[in-house]
Amino acid sequence: MITFENVSKWYGDFQVLKDCTTSVARNEVVVVCGPSGSGKSTLIKCANALEPYQAGKIEVDGIDFGDPKTDLPKLRARIGMVFQSFELFPHLSVVDNIAIAQVKVLERDATDARDRALALLDRVGLKEHAEKFPAQLSGGQQQRVAIARGLAMDPVAMLFDEPTSALDPEMINEVLDVMVELAQEGMTMMVVTHEMGFARKVADRVIFMDEGQIIEDAAKDDFFGSPRSDRAQSFLSKILSH
């Protein structure tokens, strides 16, 4: 579904991604973890071309991002993305946040888009908040709306960039619950997160990154059982000890 082939990226002289090769298969859930500054968020942003990369190849559903003929907006519309800081549109009501791209990008009828938005809000448990504005919701609620907004586009895959890192601890689970449910329904997901409980529960594979490199790319049980690299081991021991 998503393949990275020898992807490298530089900010000026600084190389943020070094020769990254991996893939996410259909219906697979891949968790990407690693210390901050390891390039994991950059990698996931490359997966819908929000960040340009200078070398290598990224394909989604067989379509090459690097091909100048690729209609980037159209391709992005097929991949849902959830950001660390939610990024709901503050000038639009909750239901309009979910409806606007359906109407403007997918050219759905406004009533259909709204019905669909309400159904998705119901699914993430926020139907009664449909007419509120994002600022009136808690962080956890906002992030659930953001997930609904991504799902409304009927994406072939969902990308999550540290979806719970900006949340107060008591709100993390309400967001993770929605994500677990999605994973169990077979959604193809690539998730940058430090929530190892989530990884254990639903991930098929875990990728560990450090200094722009993919150090470890293993099936979940192998990763948690016995990570091969020292760096992954020490990262895991740090992150699991609290």
């Binding site: 907006p73 992005r76 519309a77 097929r78 991949i79 800081s85 990024e87 549109f89 000038h91 990008v105």
Partner: peptide
Amino acid sequence: RSGQAAAAKALGMTYTQTMRYIVLPQAFR
């Protein structure tokens, strides 16, 4: 915030749509 434009783009909006529906309404406000 630049994340607003990123979110609009991630939903498949073109540059013009991103400006018209997401960035400019907030900027003008």
